[in-house]
Design a protein around this nucleic acid. Structure first.
Lengths: 239, 239
DNA sequence: TACGTTCAAGAGCAGTGCTCTCGTTTTTTG
DNA sequence: CAAAAAACGAGAGCACTGCTCTTGAACGTA
């Protein structure tokens, strides 16, 4: 996105063409290194070495390591967002809400298990001294939006929540205003609370599993996750 | 714990006394730095500078940066564990399960908000190339054990779960064997599943909040967390 | 052709974890 | 009590990091 702002989208001259290609090559190499050694150990010099250039040259394409990390962040957010959206879209009968829920959940976990370092970059502790810029928000919103769309569809389908609901206090209603202002789905407060809870549980589970907090406690991650997804589907009234 | 293994617990000679004190001083300085700049930016040299010694001298007390991190890890796990246990114990009527649940949840979140970098060290993405040794398991188990004790008390008190339960498949039952073998609480499969879910949601919520994933979505973290805790209390049948 | 921009390369700075050596001090042993 | 042994702090040094600045060549434009 930032590259699109600094250069015209269609590289005309040979120089612009080379620049676009090298930018892609740097990002690809960084992505490879990210997958191997993790975000905190990502080294600009190693990327430059991998590409056969001197490290200072890469600073013409990414002004700092943080800018490179931001690009990788957006790329990864888009990747898991794409995985979730296509898994959701693969369910032909849009009314099969439980199937869509399962597809989304397993897409999240499968991507996370397949790309643990990328997942850690997105949902683990922030890199020290680095704050993700607002540029990342659209890509980061794709998974939450998919979940909200599902909740919306459940609402218009008249599905009742499977888990008991509490009266939503005024303070909580106000707190949810952030989500409401960002989207225009029609979702009741109660369903919104349950959806947020499910979102939290989904990513909490994946994080706990990937970061080793279920070690020796849960013996079969696949089986347990499947059961969790099923339980949440019931709570959300999707079955 | 490791220091207790290498030296006798009562420092007899002056040298042992000085060693114990310097070890504590290094840990305290590291702890201060951890709180300021975060785990990934923790620097052995900066700790040495802070203590007015040369960096190589610190390696006589902690053989590597990872060993220092492990000590901080255990310290932090014990701190949040202690916070949770004392919050739980502060509820005089042990039968007030909902009050205990609220106390535990808010102890977790309050500690996390007050010590964000320490929380990130414990529950965020693992430090690159660093795997927490098994030595950390006892300290890390304190919070889960407090939750299991609460679930056990609810079970013997005959409290019915508030949220619907699914039949637990054989694979899931087997997966839960890890927890069962580590404790000897009597908890039904269904209640164990709901307790694990609540644990996942609790830490998932705190992580999402602290790591910025609720930014602009949830406008009042306190209010939302309180409502989440109340909802989970209902699901667990504690109210 | 001439000018201005862009580029890769290299040197260099300040910082990191960590190792090794070297005298000195303290503890243990004979 | 004296000698051997262990532990210690200090310093130099290695390989690495992110990043900056300068230099000379290649390129695009007019």
């Amino acid at each position: 996105m930032m590259a699109a702002m600094t250069t015209t989208s269609a590289p005309r001259t040979a120089r612009e063409h080379a620049r676009a290609e090298l930018t892609r090559a740097i990002l690809a190499s960084a992505r490879r290194q990210l997958a191997e050694v993790g975000p905190a150990a990502l080294s600009v010099r190693a990327v430059a070495r991998d590409l056969g250039m001197v490290s200072s040259a890469t600073y013409r394409y990414f002004r700092s390591r943080d800018e490179l990390l931001t690009a990788l962040l957006i790329e990864a957010y888009d990747e898991i967002g794409e995985a979730v959206e296509s898994a959701d879209a693969a369910v032909n009968d849009r009314g099969e809400l439980a199937a869509r829920w399962r597809a989304i959940c397993h897409a999240v976990r499968d991507w996370a298990v397949g790309n643990p370092h990328e997942y850690a970059l997105l949902y683990g502790s922030p890199v020290p001294g680095y704050a993700a810029p607002e540029t990342t928000i659209p890509a980061a919103s794709r998974v939450p939006l998919a979940l909200l769309a599902l909740a919306h569809d459940a609402e218009v389908a008249g599905r009742a929540l499977g888990a008991p609901t509490l009266p939503v206090p005024e303070a909580e209603h106000a707190a949810l205003g952030g989500i409401r202002s960002l989207t225009d789905f029609t979702i009741s407060d109660q369903r919104l609370v349950r959806s947020l809870l499910a979102w939290t549980t989904l990513f909490g589970h994946v994080s706990m599993e990937l970061f080793g907090h279920m070690y020796r406690g849960v013996l079969d991650y696949d089986a347990h996750f499947a059961h969790v997804v099923e339980t949440l589907a019931g709570d959300l009234g999707l079955v």
